[in-house]
Every structure is written in C-alpha cells, then in structure tokens.
Design a protein around this nucleic acid. Structure first.
Lengths: 143, 143
DNA sequence: TATTGTTATACTCTATAACTATA
DNA sequence: TATAGTTATAGAGTATAACAATA
C-alpha cells in the first residue's frame, strides 16, 4: 500500500510519540504509575514546595486536571501537601514517593537510552534539540 | 522552576507532538476535518479501493474505531463505498472529497513547512529520519 | 479457519465553565 | 482584581469483547 504520509515530519512526530508513549506506559505499569505521574513526581522532587498550579503550568496540565492526578498520588502515599498560606498548598514527595520515583527513574533512563539507540548515529544528537525547538518555541502557557 | 524533564528525548517527543498536534487541529477546524480524517483521505486517495481494515492497519487505527470516522466522512459526502465482494468494501474519494482534500493539503503542506522552519537549520534534515526510526522500527501492526 | 464489518462499551486524556476563598 | 483549589461535565481518542456474514 502506498504511503503518502510518513514523509511529513508532523505525521512522523505523532506516530513516534504514540508508539513510544505506549511502550513507556507498559513499562511503568508494574509500578502502577502513569507517564503524567512520573513527570509530576520528578518535577516535585526538583521543586519541593511548588504549588499544583505552578506545576501544572510547567507541564501544561490545567489546574482542573491536576486534581485527580494529585489525588491518586496522595492516596498512594507518594506526595504530601503542606499549607503555604490560607490559599496555596505546597507539594513534596514522601519517603515512599522518593523510593517509588527512584524505581521509576531507572525505567525511564533505560527507556530513553533505548530510544536514542534506535536512532541512526548520524541523526542521534540532533533529535533532542530539534524536538525542543518544536514545542519550546511557543509562548508560555497560561493555565 | 527547575526543569528535570526536557532533556529526555521521549518527553520532548510527547510535548512536541502534543503542541504541534493542537496547532494543526486548530488549522483544520475551518474545514471541519480532524487529523485522522485528513490522514485517511490522503491514504484513500493514494490507494483507491482499499478496505477499511487495510487502511486501519496502515494508520494503526483499529477496525472498530474506523467505523465512526468513516461514517463521518461518508455523511459529509467525502468518501464513497463500493462492494468488492460479499464481504469487503472498497473506499474511494468522491468529487467533493477530492476538492476538500486539496484544501486540506494546502493547510498541511504549509504547516509542515513551518514546522521545519522552527527547527534550527543544523538539525533540520535529521528530524524526519530520526522520527521514522523511532516508530517504523517496530513490527507491523496486527489489528 | 481467518477476515471483514459492525455494535456496544469503558477508560483515559483533555477542555470548559463555574464556584469559593484567599492573596 | 487576580490567583488557588475544586467540582462537574463534555468531548475526543483509544481499547476490548463480541457477533454475523463471508472468504
């Protein structure tokens, strides 16, 4: 069958993201974590005390959609909240959260290394800067 | 805020795909077409008479999920079916479908060109082969 | 026996609007 | 007046299971 699509960078981008995303989700399943969970845990670890709104802006996840994600992580005992003032709440990893994230990080690191290995060496070093140019180019999210 | 994520190719891939996908969807909205619609129209045009199952395998869209997409395209008068035998049905573009696809193609082509322009010249030619290595590498879909 | 087309259904992700309370 | 947190809800996209009819 003729393929008029895969020479489009945008199409290849979506297919690659879908395929690799499904693969990563499968690898994270034994930890009962989703990709958004791991992203959030990593971001909280790097920025302890940040608010849900600020984290959401960084990840491009809307405030309203942060609620069920954080609820799941809190119910799992991985994230704790502590009031900053009467309005804002800072987030931190619990001890269990640190442990779980360490496991997740091993999976992520080996997964990312495998991704790069799949890319022919001549193109490998260009992938990340090219991708970051495509989405970092845009303006800052509002949320 | 510290960003421990965007140095991961897989993360950058998902963010880039999401951002560019949203942008393309917005540009296609005036035509009342979705990305999957355009992909399918292009594939049918390149392979007239192909069955829904075969098209779905190529696009990694499952048989069951082809039904509502094709129904929408048929209701819009863009795609026509003709029986191959008692079981299979071949798909073709109607005249309206050809016209609509030509409009969509103009949008797609300029969009794809803009995407490449956002990538620094040093990395530009590496993007497509790197992406195709990431998802074409996998085995053929079964569906 | 494998494949095509289809129906029904559930789950996840994302978007929008609205509300309360506080800075 | 803007922001944080929340609730409720709707719309896509995707996945699974099952079925009838035909190759």
């Amino acid at each position: 069958m003729k393929d008029p699509l895969s020479h489009y960078p945008g199409y290849a981008l979506r297919r690659a993201a879908f395929a690799t995303g499904a693969e990563l989700s499968a690898r994270l399943e034994p930890l009962e974590l989703r990709q958004s969970d791991v992203s959030l845990l990593m971001l909280i670890q790097a920025n302890p005390g940040a608010t849900a709104s600020a984290l959401g802006r960084k990840l491009d996840i809307q405030r309203a959609n942060m609620v069920p994600i954080l609820k799941r992580l809190e119910d799992a005992g991985l994230v704790a909240r502590e009031a900053i003032d009467g309005k804002s709440v800072g987030l931190e990893l619990t001890g269990d959260g640190q442990t779980k994230l360490a496991e997740a990080r091993r999976i992520i690191e080996s997964f990312e290394a495998e991704l790069l290995e799949r890319v022919p060496a001549a193109h490998r070093q260009h992938l990340l800067p090219a991708l970051n140019a495509l989405w970092n180019a845009g303006a800052e999210p509002t949320n």
